[in-house]
């Protein structure tokens, strides 16, 4: 089944999974957003503006890295090729675009993050499927009975772990999507679950970026995010007041 998936959805067709996930996730978020005091159409606008800003930023970031190439071929600026793209610039621009829209439309930050949590959860599932199809995020070599053969070696099925945990988080939080509670609580729970499981599962990845003494950078970042989210949950639980909106 894995071979069929990887043959049919080999790159760049694997991108269909996150694209579908964004569409489904946003629909879900828009449906439950009014319970969080956020208008569904504003949420969609926020997503659209972030996406457009991200696309623009990703392209500009790549151009900034290789100016000579674009000076020689200015028309490439308008190319639809997705490889002319810098992911970090896209993230930064997308974030800036989102912040600007949040402030201009006076959307309350924590309410909005709660409203976006269903979309983020579905997107995590879509990304996991994309990894499964493309062979990215491959596992470390292993001799366990459930290994999969990838890139010439038996490995942990880390993409399967990722998919299962994303589905698990979605199922755990599903009922809370429609519940009203303290602003920020749903988002922080999602963050805690995602970062905690990432912290654990990263150990089984075969493509981890390492720092000193073999420490995996992704685990360090996951730990920091986990600490932040647990602190937030702890504060919200102790106080009936909500986290101050940005």
């Amino acid at each position: 089944m894995l071979t069929i998936l990887q043959n049919f959805f080999s790159p760049p067709r694997h991108l269909i999974f996150p694209i579908i996930a964004i569409w489904v996730g946003l629909s879900l978020s828009s449906r439950y957003a009014p319970k969080r005091g956020v208008a569904g159409n504003k949420l969609e606008n926020l997503a659209l503006i972030s996406l457009l800003a991200g696309l623009l930023g990703g392209r500009l970031g790549y151009v900034a890295d290789y100016p000579q190439a674009f000076l020689a071929s200015p028309l490439s600026l308008l190319s639809l090729n997705t490889d002319l793209f810098d992911a970090w610039s896209a993230f930064a621009f997308g974030l800036i675009g989102a912040i600007i829209y949040l402030q201009r439309s006076q959307l309350p930050f924590w309410h909005t993050m709660d409203a976006l949590t269903p979309a983020m959860s579905v997107l995590a599932i879509g990304i996991a499927f994309a990894h499964l199809a493309s062979g990215d995020a491959f596992g470390a070599p292993s001799t366990l009975p459930w290994v999969i053969e990838q890139w010439g070696t038996d490995r942990h099925p880390s993409q399967v772990y990722e998919t299962l945990t994303a589905l698990l988080i979605f199922c755990l939080l599903w009922k809370q999507f429609s519940q009203s509670e303290q602003p920020g609580m749903l988002f922080l729970r999602f963050l805690a679950c995602t970062s905690g499981l990432r912290l654990f599962l990263e150990a089984f990845r075969g493509d981890s970026a390492l720092i000193f003494n073999g420490i995996r950078i992704a685990q360090v970042i996951a730990w920091i995010v986990l600490a932040f989210s647990l602190l937030g949950i702890s504060r919200l639980s102790r106080s009936p007041k909500s986290l101050q909106d940005i």
Partner: peptide, 12 residues
Amino acid sequence: IGGPMPRALLQS
């Protein structure tokens, strides 16, 4: 994967 590659992509 796929093409034609934009000249800027090839050069970069």
